[in-house]
Computed example of a mutant assay.
Amino acid sequence: MEYTYVRHDRDLQDLCQQLASDEYIYFDTEFISEDVYLPDLCLIQVASRSGLSVIDPKGMLDLTPFWDLITSEHVTVVAHAAREEFLFCFRATGKWPTRLFDTQVAAGLIGMEFPVSLGNLITRLMGERLPKGETRTNWRGRPLSKQQIEYALNDVIFLDSIYQQLVAEIEKLGRTEWMVAEMNRFQQAWEDYSTRPGWRSVSGIGNLNRRSLAIVRELWTWRDHHARSQNVPPRRVLRDDLVVELSKRKSSNISQIKALRGMNRRDLDPYIQDLADCVRTALELPDDQCPVNQRGNANSQYTVLGQFLTAALGSICREARIAPSLACTVQDVRDLVAYHLDGSGEVPPLAKGWRAEVIGQTIEDLLDGSLVVRIGDPRADEPLAFQRLPDPAE
């Protein structure tokens, strides 16, 4: 396997000038995230008509020329499950790749499972199997071995062929505009994830009242500052379940905080007073300064209808050759039910774009009673059948 190993700024600039004449760039990254605040970028693998390249971030000062190339208007960037690749680029430049094609998303748009791993996608489309010998390798170690580099490059050498097959199928199904819309949607979601208040991502806060949410926000802010300064994962500083439990107890009493199971760690002792101060600050906030829970509509009627309609969702999506998990979530179905019955709030995802065409209209017809679902052949791969009722006015 022939490749260029890029480890200095001047070499990266030369590579980017060479890649600038290529219409397509296929890339992937290797990173480590389990012991740091933000993922540690360790390697960038690139394939193009110019050949294969490995960019070593540990050996250079400035990756800006590469990220500027990735966000330029004339190049189509192809990657698989590109969330982290996008975030590396966005954090460095504040810009999106203009023409990003995510092969994982594209696979879901033609009816394959979502999310699908790169290895499974390569096997399905190419009949090849990726080696797994370096799955747990330490990408920070230097020098990297030939086996490590070739293992990393295997993640990009098939992307051209995969891209060509996926594009051909998407065009055959008339879904090119869908793919463009999905890339915009995913990149916007990734940007929102990167910039929104992180405390909203604490697990287990869905049923908390406003005062408890205020405590969560204060504790998260303290935890985030501490984790960033120490360059460690925030949950290693204080687990989510402990944050939620402290918010439920609403006590700034140090002895009561220390009595909570899980708070008796020796490394937490120096910070017990800080945690008590966080709780106290939140308890003293005026009511109108406490955050509101942003969970979906909890109406029990909508929940029951959502559960029923979700059961039929798989049949709808498979008939349309769309991965159900790409099309929508259970909450999306509930939001459509609420919007259809009440007509209030923002237009939900299932009432816009291709999702309205493929899924939303069918669900609305079921809610109106003009379409019914029944068991067709119970032994068939798709046992549910849809039947349109005659219009009483005709």
Rank of each mutant, 00 (worst) to 15 (best):
R10H: 10
K352L: 15
G343D: 04
W139H: 05
L121V: 11
G127Q: 09
V292R: 13
T310Y: 15
L144N: 08
L246N: 07
S344D: 06
G127E: 10
F158W: 11
A338W: 06
Q301A: 12
N207D: 15
N299W: 06
P97T: 03
D35N: 13
Y193N: 08
G111L: 08
F31K: 01
S247L: 05
P324E: 09
R196M: 15
D277P: 00
R83F: 00
T64N: 07
D9M: 09
D40S: 10
R239L: 07
T281V: 11
L285M: 13
P115C: 02
G376Y: 03
I44W: 03
C89P: 00
E364S: 09
I149Q: 04
A282F: 05
V78S: 01
Q307E: 15
L341S: 11
W220H: 14
M179C: 08
L384H: 08
W222V: 14
G111C: 13
T123L: 12
A227Y: 10
D28P: 01
E346C: 08
G343R: 08
E169K: 15
E245D: 11
A79K: 00
L371K: 05
F88C: 00
Q148I: 07
R210D: 14
R321V: 11
T137C: 10
K248P: 08
V337R: 05
F186P: 00
K95P: 00
N253Y: 00
A380T: 03
P143W: 02
G141A: 12
Q164V: 13
L238A: 05
A168C: 09
S229Q: 14
R136A: 15
N207I: 12
Q17F: 10
T303G: 04
Q387S: 06
A47Y: 07
S344W: 03
R136M: 13
H225N: 14
P348R: 11
L130W: 10
V304W: 09
V237E: 08
Q361R: 11
D241Q: 10
E218G: 04
D342N: 12
R175T: 13
E169Y: 02
G94A: 11
V167T: 15
L12H: 01
Q165Y: 08
E169V: 10
V373G: 11
R266T: 15
F31R: 01
N293Y: 05
Y37L: 06
Y193D: 14
D335G: 02
H226C: 11
Y271M: 07
T195D: 08
W220I: 05
G108P: 09
P131I: 03
T135K: 09
E394S: 06
Y151Q: 07
G59P: 04
R140G: 14
Q148K: 06
Q301K: 12
A312M: 14
M183R: 01
L341Q: 13
M60K: 02
E191Y: 01
V292H: 13
T329K: 07
G206N: 09
H8K: 12
A214R: 02
V36E: 07
D335L: 06
L121T: 12
L260F: 06
R91D: 10
L336Q: 05
M112R: 09
V75G: 02
N231R: 06
L242R: 02
V216Q: 01
S370P: 00
P234D: 09
P348A: 09
L275M: 10
R142V: 14
P65F: 07
R142T: 10
G127F: 07
G141T: 12
